[in-house]
Each structure stands twice: as C-alpha cells, then as structure tokens.
Nucleic acid binder design. Structure first.
Length: 721
RNA sequence: GGCGAAGUAGCUCAGUUGGUUAGAGCGUACGACUCAUAAUCGUAAGGUCGCGAGUUCAACUCUCGCCUUCGCUACCA
C-alpha cells in the first residue's frame, strides 16, 4: 500500500504580491510534485493558504484606510487569481482568517499548555517610561551575561552569538533614548523549546535521513540548533490575530510564527471538514512534503514540529523538506517598491502562454544555489530548449505520418523498434525516479533528453528516403516516434499540464497518468487530428520590449540615482575638530565637537578610532556632510558625518589647512550648496563622491573650495564617505 | 566591522564519501540533412574548477589565509 502524500507550499503573506521567485520557490514547485504524485497513483492532497495575521497587515490596513479583514479579502483574491492563472492545482487554498484556524491553533495551544510546555512567564518586560512603550527585544541593549560584551542587544549578543532575552542583560538601556528601561509587568506565554530538545533531535535524525532533506535544510537546521534553543514567546500585544484562550491573556493574540504553520492544518480542515484527520493524524500512512524558500527552513524543521510534537497528539510530521534558493531578476533582487522584476499581476498583460512560464521557471529552478532570471535566457530556453526540441519533434512526426499514412494510426508494436523503445522506456523511468525524489529540474531535463533522442532517431532513420524504398519499415519508425511522444506527453503533464494535454490530444489520447508509460495499446487505431503548431516561437523584438519595461530602467528614468541630482541636495562644509574623545560606550567610535562656523559647535560621532589617534585628529580642518539627518550611534546623536577617503582597508581624513571654517564645497563651475534641508544618508551616497588621482570628484567633475580643488594626500583613489 | 552563503566553459547550471583525459544544455565555428516552426543531426573550439599556501601517493572536492559577489546585521553615518 502506497503511503499518502500530503503536500504543502509555504503560506504566502497575504499583502505581498508574489513575484516569479516566490512562485517557483513554493507554489509552482509544490504543484509539479502534487501533479506528479496524483499521476503516479499516490493518494495526494495539496494544501496552501494565505497567512493573514500580524503587524504588517495592520499597518497596511491603516495605510489604505481599510480594516485588516478587508485588506486580507482584497489581497487573498489577488493571490487566488495569480495562482489560478499559473494553473496551480491546489486541492484547497485557504486563509488563516478562517474560523477553523482559530479552532486548530487554540487546540494545539491547549494541548501544549496541558503538557506543561507553555511557560506562563508573567515576566516583567522592559518598558521605557520616557518613550512610553514596551521595547522590542532588539531595542534594549546592555552587557551580555555570557561573554560580558557591553553592546549586546536584547535578542542576541553580537559578540558571542547567543540568543538572549532583554531581561538577561546587565545594565539595560533603551536604544531609542538611552535611558534605562523599567520592568513593567506584562504577561506573555512562551513555548518551552528546551524541554522538547531531545524529542526534536530524534525527529531530525529520523526525518532528515528518511525524507532525504536537501543540503541547505540540514545545515540551516543544525545552525539554528547550535545557536541555542530558547523558550520562544508565542503571544503578542496586537489585535489582528488568533486570540489566546487563556485567562489573563484575552487581550493578546498569538505570534504569527506560532499560528502561521498551523495554517496548513486548519486550511485542510476548512476544505475537508470530515477527512482532514486522515491526513494530519496519520504519521504511519502519510508522508508530509513541504515546499518553501530557504528563509523558511527553521520554522518547518524546528518550530512547527516542536509545536506538534509537544502537543502530545499523533500528528503527521515533516517527511521531506523541499527548500529552494532564491531566483534573482537580471542579476538583482526582485523589488516591488522599485517595480523591479516580474510579479504575478504583470503576467496576464504579457500574454505569453502560462506553460512557457512554467517551463522556464522549472527549468531554472534554484535548487542548489541562487539562479537568475534574464529575458535573454528566457527567450533562448523557450525557443531552443523547448520549442525547437519538443514542439518541432511533435510537428515533424505527425505531419510526416499523416501525409504519408493517413488514418487511423497503425498501432501494433513493431518488432524492429524494440531497441529504440527500450531507450524511451529507460528515459521515462529515469524521469519518474527523479520526480519522485523531488529532483524537479533534473526530471524536466530528462524529458528534454527524450525529445532529443526522438529528433536524433528521426534524423538517423532518414524516413524521407525510406518512404520511397521501404514504406512499411518507415511506418514502424514513425509509429515508434509517436509512442515516444505519448510517453513524453504523459511525463510533461506535471510540468506543463495544458501543453501535455494538447500533445496527447494530437495523438488522439487523453492524459492517463504516469503509470501508463510504456503501455501503448491505446494508440492502436487512434484517430489523429490534424497536426497543429504547439507554440509559436517567441520573437526577440517582443521580448526586448519587455526588457525595457521590467528591467528597472524605469527606475533610472523616474527616480534617477543621478549623482548630480543627489549632489544638489548635499551640503559639505569645512569644520575644525575642537574637541575629541573616545565614545564612552563604543570601541571604535570617537565623539567630536566640530566648529563649522555656526553659533554652536556640533557633536559628531565617527568610526575613526581604528585609523587615527585622538591627537592626530584634534585641530584638523575636515570635510563634514553637514545637512545629514542626525543619527543615534550608541546613545550619542551625531549631527553630521566626517568625510574620509576610503580604499580597501585604508582611510584618510583630509586635513584642509588652507580652508576657512564654515566654507562650503562646490562643484567646479557652480556655486556652493547652502542652507539645504536635511537629507538621508542614502541621498548623500547617491551623489557618489569619489577620489581619483587625488582629486575629489563626481562623475569626472571636480569639487573645490575657495582656495582651489579638493585633494587627498595619501590615498589617490577611493570612495568618499 | 561581524555572521552566513556563494565564486566550475561566452551564458544557465551538474559535479555523490578526495581517485584515470572536469560534465550537460544553450550559444559560437565548420560540416551534413531537408520530413519539420531556417527546425534537426554530427564534429570542433572553449575551463591553471576565484587567488595563494598546506595536508595527501592523489585536491574542483579537506585545512588555513586572501580577493570578489550576495544576503543578514552592526559601534559605517
């Protein structure tokens, strides 16, 4: 009896519109596997849902002036539409805002609570009375209790890497205002992961071997555990979430990381209220395959299994984890805010058959390392690797057969073709094996190899000659090629479902599943419809036009990281360091008082300690970026930035002996920028000030002061910052 | 600066526990064929497997250092 296969893809966060990278990482990969499993005769269930709770949704709702629920309705529909367009064969696509989700989450919580694994730390949490807010862990700093490092954050120590709770810190300080926070009583609940450690590690050892986890899943999980398993808080002070069913916690909700994975279960319950337990309470008979991108690994290998194991119920646990790396876009990251890359919502208007997208993404699935989408690659992969190979083989075989032999298909298995057909069967078996191991990309490559085998056989057999000399033998060759196309079509069905049906349709067949490979009896006497072109090839011109549209060039046009535009907002003044001392709280920083010719000297913080002694800097006239937004550096506000030339690991702070204090730098041929509004650091760097041949310049145009061009002494070439 | 991942043919990627001349597809060149969507088939060129040491009889594979890229993060500002 074959085990059932329960397949999930990571729950997409509801108000992120998925891009191609998201789609190949989770939903599409899982879809191929689910389709494979069904076709191979496994009882299969493929579940997904939108993850809807949490701060991000609350914020988005505020922005758009809607309720969280309305936001979720809106974005859930967008997800649904995109996945439908992609032909994703969910058995059920749910939502964590469904009532079942509250039931299941609360039930698991109650089980954990009964098992004594919920620590009701009626903790006092750090609360800043000055800022009147509870401080998130990382906003508290202090001395690490493990290594004594003074700059440890409340969630983790950067020196020793240990995970911390803010209350463990000695001498805690609010990172916002620098005042010591008080401890204010607030009750939160924690999942007692340390108590589950031995059961977890037993699960890891078993499952990672049996389920053949990918390399990145194993290393990531190990790394996570080595860093130390701590009790993790599972409640938060929010409104939009699953209410905590426990006295004293009614006004809190569960932390999303706790409830989101439970969405797999609750979605199954929403879709299959009567049979969901057959899947989720059946570890013996059901194998759980979970698909996700690499950033989601620890939640599926540690946190979620811990919740289920700890509940004491007989849950179905993770069997195989299929974690992909990232897909980049033309060498960079996808970015919704910068309109960089292709998003699910863009696809329809591009009007490229969806199976071609599926083909490209699956053929370039980032299995071992990050991979890269490029339009040139897209064009080549579609045209050369798919259409020229498979599309053309289908066409040449069918056209040749029908032109010469008409109808119906003469279906007996010709003895002369057994050798060739064995090769076909062997490739088919290889492809099936790869698919079963979730080697999705290699499976597809094997199918293409089958196409190449067919093309080669056609060519080597020279049927255009044979038709004159030995029509009967030639017919056998063509029939064998049609058999190949049949298996190829069946094998392609998980990858390109619509295309597979079209291929099979042209053979007068229907999709029969992958168990029928090598069984060609149904082809005997089949009526063949007139051959049609499977896909027109993509035109380079058309693809090139998409390049401009999505390659972020519009970013250049619209936002323009034009250095000169940025420079127009930057003010650089000459200042004299009149006082300098080490930063009391930092190893690498100085705190300086700098006279910029203003009413008051300014306080600046600079990371120059590793390069200069205080004496060397005292009295120097230096360049200061003077209209930067003040920044808090370890408790001291820095009102500007001392500029230095940087090359590799060398640094030079130019000493401008001849300059006047308060003088403003200008671009040659222009007047100085004065009295400008505050800018972000990013804007400053967008001006891309550099040093070349000792000259300060922007894109080749020099910077000057009244006495002459700005020059460096020690470092001839480098960046200024 | 810290942590993590990565660096293999022009491009996209494979390379299992170290073991003969490092692979595939695409692209390129040349040739063949002509049934087919100028598709197909063959041959070839093309890599000091980021750089430098070390361990070993033997290193793309192990160790150390360095360089570069990407991500996260910070006492970069």
């Amino acid at each position: 009896m074959k085990k059932k296969r329960l397949i999930t893809s990571a729950l997409p966060y509801v108000n992120n519109v998925p891009h191609l990278g998201n789609i190949i990482g989770c939903v599409l990969s899982a879809d191929v596997y689910a389709r494979y499993c069904r076709a191979a005769g496994y009882e299969t269930l493929y579940i997904c849902a939108t993850d809807e709770y949490g701060t991000a949704t609350e914020n988005k709702a505020r922005e758009e002036g809607l309720s969280p629920k309305e936001i979720c309705d809106k974005y859930h529909a967008i997800h649904q539409e995109i996945y439908q367009y992609f032909n994703i064969s969910f058995d059920f696509f749910g939502r964590t805002s469904h009532p079942e989700h509250i039931e299941v989450t609360q039930a698991i919580f109650s089980d954990l609570d009964k098992a004594g694994l919920v620590l009701e730390q009626e903790t006092e949490q750090t609360y800043c009375e000055v800022d009147q807010m509870f401080l998130a862990d990382r906003y508290v700093e202090g001395t690490c209790p493990h290594c004594g490092y003074e700059g440890a954050r409340g969630d983790q120590c950067d020196r020793c890497g240990k995970l911390l709770q803010p209350t463990e810190l000695k001498n805690p300080k609010c990172q916002v205002c620098g005042n010591p926070p008080v401890l204010k009583k607030t009750k939160h609940l924690y999942l007692d992961l340390p108590s589950l450690e031995s059961r977890l590690s037993e699960f890891h050892q078993r499952s990672s071997i049996q389920g053949k986890w990918a390399h990145n899943a194993i290393t990531t999980t190990q790394g996570w555990i080595e860093r130390g398993i701590q009790p993790r808080p599972i409640t938060r002070d929010l409104k939009w979430g699953v209410p905590v069913p426990k006295a004293g916690f009614q006004n809190k909700v569960f932390y999303v990381w706790f409830d989101a994975p439970i969405g797999y279960i609750s979605a199954t319950k929403s879709g299959y209220p009567d049979t969901w337990k057959d899947w989720w309470f059946d570890p013996e008979g059901t194998q759980l395959y979970q698909f996700m991108a690499k950033d989601n690994i620890p939640f599926h290998t540690v946190v979620f299994p811990a919740s289920l194991i700890g509940s004491g119920q007989n849950w179905t646990l993770l069997h195989h984890i299929a974690s992909t790396e990232y897909l980049n876009y033309e060498g960079g990251k996808f970015s919704k805010s910068r309109s960089l890359g292709i998003f699910g919502t863009d696809l329809k208007e591009l009007d490229i058959p969806i199976d071609l997208w599926r083909f490209y993404l699956l053929f370039n699935r980032p299995e071992r390392s990050d991979s890269n989408f490029s339009w040139d690659g897209f064009l080549e992969d579609i045209n050369s690797n798919f259409i020229d190979n498979i599309g053309n083989l289908l066409n040449r075989v069918l056209v040749f057969y029908q032109k010469n032999y008409g109808q119906p298909l003469d279906g007996a298995i010709p003895a002369s073709q057994v050798g060739f057909l064995d090769q076909v069967k062997e490739l088919g078996a290889t492809a099936l094996g790869l698919m079963d191991q979730v080697q999705i990309k290699d499976g597809l490559k094997t199918i293409l190899a089958m196409g190449r085998l067919g093309n080669k056989y056609f060519h080597d057999s020279e049927p255009w000659k044979g038709i004159k000399e030995d029509p009967e033998k030639t017919k056998e060759i063509l029939v064998a090629l049609i058999y190949l196309l049949h298996d190829l079509g069946q094998l392609l069905s998980p990858y390109m479902p619509q295309t597979a049906e079209e291929i099979l349709g042209m053979l007068g067949q229907k999709k029969r599943g992958l168990t029928g490979l090598g069984d060609w009896s149904s082809l005997a006497g089949a009526q063949l419809p007139a051959p049609a072109i499977l896909f027109q090839k993509l035109e380079k011109k058309r693809i090139d036009s998409f390049k401009d549209r999505f390659s972020g060039k519009r970013e250049l046009v619209e936002e323009g990281p034009d250095p000169f535009a940025a420079w127009a907002k930057v003010e650089i003044k000459v200042g004299k360091i009149i006082h300098i001392e080490p930063h009391p709280e930092a190893d690498r920083l100085y705190v300086e008082k700098i006279d910029l010719g203003e009413d008051q000297p300014r306080t600046l913080v600079s990371g120059l300690k590793a390069y200069y002694s205080a004496e060397e800097l005292l009295g120097r006239k230096v360049l200061v970026a003077s209209n930067l937004k003040p920044a808090l550096l370890r408790g001291v506000w820095s009102q500007g930035m001392v500029l230095a030339v940087e090359k590799r690991k060398r640094l030079e702070v130019v000493d401008l002996k001849e300059a006047e204090i308060g003088e403003v730098a200008f671009l040659e041929g222009e007047s100085p920028n004065r009295a400008l509004p505050e800018i972000e650091l990013d804007t400053f760097f967008a001006a891309q000030i550099r040093v070349k041949d000792h000259r300060f310049e922007i894109e080749g145009r020099g910077l000057s002061l009244a006495f002459g061009p700005l020059k460096s002494v020690e470092i001839s070439e480098g960046k200024v910052g």
